[in-house]
Write a protein that binds this DNA or RNA. Structure first.
Lengths: 174, 174
DNA sequence: CTGATGTCGTTGACAACGCAACCATATCAG
DNA sequence: CTGATATGGTTGCGTTGTCAACGACATCAG
């Protein structure tokens, strides 16, 4: 009944490596929900909304193209449209035409948005530290970064993988 | 390469450890979507639906309580109700009263459900192998299991605004 | 310039999920 | 037994997300 496990290249339904996958799923779900919940309770922002504010806030001029935002926040085009709709309704973001491309739209952070972003960042960073970083040793964090990168590459649907479009970690404006 | 960032206990917005968090999010999103998409295309099942079938199919008698299912599939009570609704509509599952508890309902796998599960398992296991397991060395997989367990523990228990949670309840050492 | 084609963002229709309210039943105090 | 309370599951409703279709603009061949 017991199949020898890590012997061959084929994964079977009883392979303990499947357990790792499930643990991974569970960790993500719990972590995401906890961070989302804390942001909602303390600042009225969902985690995706917060992440959008972060991306806008760290961009030069504090404005970002919608398409760029979609990649960063891991959402579809229409998802971003509606996310920005909400942030506009809340007064945290304004829409602005793109100067170079008349088709394009940019999301611009308002002063209120910047303020809210700064406040929420405290909560978020605390959460990341508490539930994520502090659970991992420095070497484990390193390993995690490497492995997640590898997984991301393999699962990357259509190209776009690891384009490392992350220059200027100028962090939050201050 | 890896600069030691562990200078202070406080996470700031420019801390590279935040990058690990984003990579983690991205890896999850891509992996989940890829596996979901493959299951849908080849078998008409979403990933949560497939996971529910797995949980039912591996249980004794191939029947599971709804509440138990909710924990396994990482869904709310109502989420499970509707997930099972769909599977019932597809003929893969039947509802059945629980013999011990007249309040309870159990989901039972139908022959068609078992058949579909077996077929889909091939696809899923292939995906897990291709995009997840094969991206990780044996030791990395081990590290991942341990760290995800730790994250899950910290984020899962109810220590929202207050205190760090007690370490290691029991059962999961090391 | 003009038409073909691709890209950007929005919209409508819809699927999936969570929360809170709700029954039905279990369980426990008295 | 009886009433109070807790638990399992479903339902109504709101929220959030995707996909396909669309209009507006860009871009390039001719």
């Amino acid at each position: 009944m017991t199949e020898s496990v890590t012997t061959g290249r084929n994964l079977t339904a009883s392979d303990p490596r499947l357990e790792v996958w499930r643990t991974f799923l569970q960790a993500h779900a719990r972590l995401f929900r906890r961070l989302d919940e804390e942001l909602r309770e303390e600042h009225g922002l969902s985690l995706p909304e917060y992440e959008a504010l972060v991306q806008i806030g760290r961009a030069p001029e504090r404005r970002v193209r919608m398409s760029h935002l979609a990649q960063q926040v891991l959402l579809s085009k229409s998802g971003v449209t509606r996310l920005i709709d909400r942030l506009v309704a809340d007064g945290f973001v304004e829409r602005s035409a793109c100067s170079h491309d008349a088709r394009g739209a940019e999301a611009v952070l308002t002063p209120a948005g910047l303020e809210r972003l700064r406040a929420a960042a405290t909560t978020h960073l605390r959460g990341i530290d508490r539930y994520f970083v502090s659970a991992l040793g420095a070497d484990e964090l390193d390993t995690l970064a490497r492995t997640m990168q590898a997984v991301s590459l393999r699962a990357g649907s259509d190209a776009a993988a690891g384009e490392a479009c992350d220059p200027v970690p100028d962090g939050l404006p201050s």
